[in-house]
Amino acid sequence: MQVPVKPKLKIATTSLAGCFGCHMSFLDIDERLFDLIELAEFDRSPFTDIKHCGPCDIGLIEGGLCNAENVHVLREFRANCKTLVAVGACAINGGLPAQRNHLSIATVLTEIYHTQHGLVGGFIPNDPELPLPLNQVHPIHEVVKIDYFIPGCPPSGEAIWKVLTDLIAGREPDLSHGLMQFD
């Protein structure tokens, strides 16, 4: 009798208000990517350039929410991913982008596009395709339910691998000392 082939897991990844550092750290799992693609295939991700997330088993979110588009993408991931994981400091607590939170958005935009040195005749971009910035940067757990968190700036490849392999094996993810870092 032929053993039925187990369908591969689907994983989607995205970077919201992040720097792609967590994705770079994900690539630090190096040749274990080959082990991973034996078990899983990528849906929406910078690896595939798929633009919209379909039904997935695991979603990895890097970055917090700094504009309206980030919120739409996050909700799309939540609607499609059975397990949603916040990856890195920005997704978990806003991180570096949230350092603007004590300033008004008007102050920030004026400083960047008007008053900084060498910006004579500058203007605040207003193309309708540009997503509108939020008045403050927010961690993603403030908007949707997040199932697991991988802290770090960025989390190490080892930490990401540990959580992914735990999830794939059906274990509760657990980061021991050294893998759990806030910096």
């Binding site: 949230a98 961690p139 403030e142 000392h177």
Partner: peptide, 16 residues
Amino acid sequence: AYEMNMMSSHFDHFFP
């Protein structure tokens, strides 16, 4: 926080 296995801040941030 590491000792208590704090994976996230759970609550909404005040950003004071």
